[in-house]
């Protein structure tokens, strides 16, 4: 136990402000954000992730937003296991054919109002995988998307900034 306390002391607080140089490249789509969404999200934001065919690198960078450097929790952002409690659906991947039904079901299970943010270049336009027999052209072909966060993969700071932008708050 002593060693743990010592380590905590050594580590100190590493959280940092989002660096201005790491501004996210985000495409906001035409979906109008309702006032109700904004009001609801002001307290906290609960997110459900669906990997719809990513290469798994986007997952690594989404995991990283929870690390002590980015500490997504300080913005009230939580990841949830259950779609029913989610405000936002994060989607990665070009939508693999074998995930299309599961993605739609998860979307349907989230109650309104809900936001959809698609993460990574391949979620935007199938990226490196291209559209094909087993991939859609974009997540937007399967569920309505409010914002795309670009990058392959986008850095954690870009993911965090993109999420905040999508709900209309400033990072």
């Amino acid at each position: 136990m002593f060693r743990i306390l010592h380590q905590i002391f050594r580590t100190g607080i590493v959280t940092e402000p989002l660096a201005p140089g790491e501004e996210a490249r985000v495409t906001l789509t035409g979906r109008r954000l309702e006032e109700a969404i904004l009001r609801r999200f002001r307290q906290s934001l609960t997110i459900r992730l669906v990997d719809a065919g990513s290469c798994n690198a986007c997952e690594l960078e989404i995991q990283a937003v929870n690390n002590p450097f980015y500490d997504a929790e300080r913005f009230g952002i939580h990841f949830t296991a259950s779609p029913r409690f989610a405000d936002m659906l994060l989607v990665t991947g070009p939508v693999a054919r074998n995930m299309e039904v599961a993605l739609k079901r998860t979307y349907d299970a989230i109650s309104e109002p809900k936001l959809v943010v698609a993460i990574g270049d391949c979620a935007y336009d199938a990226g490196a995988f291209g559209p094909g027999y087993a991939t859609r052209r974009s997540v937007a072909d399967v569920v309505p998307v409010d914002a795309f966060i670009h990058g392959c993969p986008p850095a954690p700071s870009a993911i965090l900034a993109g999420i905040l932008k999508a709900v209309g708050r400033e990072g």
Binding site: D51, A52, G53, S54, C55, A57, G93, P94, A96, R97, N98, M99, A102, C122, A128, F129, G130, G132, Y133, A134, T135, C152
Partner: peptide, 24 residues
Amino acid sequence: YVHKGIEKRFESLSWTDGARLAGR
């Protein structure tokens, strides 16, 4: 579930472009 048809896609790429897909 995350089958993307990667092996098939290689057959439509140049040898050079293949490296980028291999990295994913």
